[in-house]
């Protein structure tokens, strides 16, 4: 174990004071119109998803394309509604665009005419006094390592920097649940590893609940306390929606050794669950 805990660059005094549990109860989502994304167009995307996420926990959601990972996340954030069942945050049902959540989208979705600083400020909850807001933004901008770029516009920075800005914006909301929808998916492999470490630093500084959608098995194992594998039941193909196929509790403390044998075994197991062959040498 050569990896050491990276020093947290700033200690946010204002953010990360909330962490809520999330509870899915028999959640289902069907789209009326046929959608092109899913493997099968019609029918439910999600079906009977039940899960309890503890406050402060990092849960990764894995699954093949079109299995409803993003839909699940959007429902928690109040960007979409379940067709059946319910989600509760901290015991209370989710409202539309729930203010207890903050989302880091797959794309940075920054306002191109605003500086990074002002993009981060967009995440501040309403009613934060101006001076305090400025302080929070400055803290977060340096937490994600962009202090020298706060006056740049999104066009002047790289994709990784844009995603860091997007993460800071989500944190500015002081979320009780942080929802991340494949936030590192579009980044190159090296940047992605750095972003994962950054997320762990941020979580150490601001231990909120994190729900992370990813298609990257290694990322899930590196970051999460538990990994949820979504997919369709092999016994009922066709019309059935996706539900939870496996829940894996990842052993060890973060940051984990990326090369450990234990994780390699879990990786193979998860890849198997995703329908990828192991090709193991004997």
């Amino acid at each position: 174990m050569v990896l050491t805990q990276a020093p947290v660059t700033a200690h946010p005094g204002h953010v990360g004071q909330r962490a809520f549990g999330v509870e899915f109860a028999g959640l289902g989502r069907a789209f009326a119109a046929p959608r092109r994304r899913g493997a099968t167009a019609a029918g439910p995307v999600l079906q009977d998803v039940s899960l309890r996420i503890e406050p402060g926990e990092i849960v990764a959601v894995l699954g093949p394309s079109g299995c409803g990972k993003s839909t699940l996340l959007r429902i928690v954030g109040g960007l979409d509604r379940p067709s059946t069942g319910s989600v509760a945050i901290d015991g209370a049902p989710v409202s539309e665009f729930d203010p207890r959540c903050a989302i880091g989208f797959q794309e940075p979705r920054l306002l191109p005419w605003r500086t990074l600083e002002h993009n981060v400020a967009l995440g501040l909850p309403r009613g934060v006094p101006r001076a305090e807001g400025r302080e929070i933004v400055a803290e977060l901008v340096s937490l994600v390592g962009l202090a020298n770029f706060s006056q740049h516009t999104p066009r002047q920075i790289s994709g990784g920097m844009a995603q860091r800005t997007s993460l800071a914006r989500a944190l500015a909301r002081n979320p009780g649940v942080l929802l991340l929808d494949e936030p590192f998916g579009a980044l190159d492999a090296l940047t992605r590893l750095k972003m994962q470490d950054l997320l762990l630093d941020v979580h150490a500084a601001a231990p909120t609940t994190v729900l992370l959608v990813t298609h990257d098995v290694d990322e899930a194992l590196q970051l999460a306390d538990r990994v949820i594998l979504l997919g369709r039941s092999p016994d009922a193909p066709g019309t059935a929606g996706n539900d939870i196929r496996q829940v894996i509790t990842v052993p060890g403390e973060r940051p984990r050794d990326r090369g450990s044998a234990e994780l390699a075994e879990l990786r193979a197991q998860l890849l198997g669950g995703l329908g990828i062959e192991r090709h193991s040498a004997h």
């Binding site: 940075p108 191109p112 740049h152 999104p154 066009r155 002047q156 920075i157 790289s158 920097m161």
Partner: peptide, 14 residues
């Protein structure tokens, strides 16, 4: 059209 998703990699502020 406004580029919200794909920022360019140009680092020069000009």
């Amino acid at each position: 059209i406004a580029i919200g998703n794909a920022p360019a990699v140009a680092v020069t502020p000009s």
